[in-house]
Design a protein around this nucleic acid. Structure first.
Lengths: 189, 189
DNA sequence: ATTGCTTTCGAACGGTCGTCCGATTGAAGG
DNA sequence: CCTTCAATCGGACGACCGTTCGAAAGCAAT
């Protein structure tokens, strides 16, 4: 809430509205009201609704990478880094599930709109790239005697992170679901 | 397209519209036009938009289970059944990705609407139940020396199926992504 | 042929949507 | 002090939304 400029206030408000109601139920008027700003200011600063939402995608991606940066240390083994990924996703699902809901919502938007698809795909590609290089190294593949490529295993690993996240969101009363993330460590044995 | 009654024509048209444009971009007027029917017929047969969409969820779930029924044979080993799950999802992603898109869309709807959440959660629970009982049997867990419960492993397994599906939808030009599903067989070694 | 019930239709309603535009404000530079 | 230009506002626009309603049509059963 340190946002000083109107532009930043609008961006923050947009994220908060998305987290609360989802894209399909969020209007520019709600966002403007949440930001304490005239509706026309959105068009002024972000051109249109799509521009604003694309800016939200960029911010979410930036926050994610900054977040992840603090979790992975160069001294860790690939297995330890993989476990850090799991721990981070567990932490997010328990403490800040709204972040994951927004991610799901934006990914859903990307399935129908080409500009969003490109941006969201890039975000996912960035995450996958990190998993590919940091976790499923050539050395690890050799040691565990895997025939799959690093990219294939990373895709499976991230897919499981994402898919379990969805289940956790659909059943918030079942606090055990994030534990299933732990079962992902079976790929390291 | 064997739909004879208006009620069935509307349901089919609703599914087709969802598959083409997604929930957020589909209006009752589009559905009515697609079905060749007056808009008011939707309210007459399904009460309102929510009722219609819930009927679509029910139909998708029914189709899925009927589909899956033909894939699993009682004579198969747990591992073979797990591979059948993988093969089915690969087949869907390659031949009928729209089905998966609709599933994603409906699950997204479920994140924000309580009636949808309950229905979609039940659908997912049915799938999970099948995986739990058919694939991750007690015998398999003992044989592979797993400490996790059947439900936990099933959650991880299904999560990976779903998560990889999302990646495949976001990158339709990358035909290799469904192959990552094959890497899921690592849980059987 | 007439009755009663379900089905179907088209038009209309009140609301909300994203966008646009003219007017007002505010601060910086001459 | 005046000019200039970016920032901000409130209101209006046309389009589309989901829903409702009265009338017409279809169709058994009497």
């Amino acid at each position: 809430m340190l946002a000083v400029t109107q532009q930043e206030k609008i961006l923050d408000a947009a994220y908060r509205c998305l987290a609360k109601d989802g894209y399909a139920q969020t209007s520019l008027r709600q966002i403007a009201a949440e930001a304490g700003v005239a509706v026309s200011q959105i068009s002024y600063h972000y051109q249109n609704k799509e521009g604003l939402l694309l800016a939200v995608v960029a911010r979410v991606a930036q926050n994610y990478h900054h977040y992840m940066q603090g979790y992975l240390k160069p001294t860790m083994t690939p297995e330890e880094k993989g476990e850090q990924f799991i721990l981070l996703y567990q932490k997010v699902l328990r403490e800040d599930p709204e972040l994951f809901r927004v991610l799901y919502d934006l990914a859903g938007l990307a399935l129908w709109s080409e500009p969003f698809r490109q941006r969201v795909r890039d975000v996912f590609a960035g995450i996958m790239d990190q998993i590919t290089k940091e976790v499923f190294t050539e050395e690890l593949l050799r040691r565990l005697d895997y025939d799959y490529t690093s990219a294939t295993l990373a895709s499976m690993f991230f897919g499981a992170l994402f898919g379990i996240g969805v289940q956790a969101l659909l059943e918030p009363e079942n606090k055990a679901i994030p534990n299933s993330l732990g079962a992902l460590t079976v790929v390291f044995r």
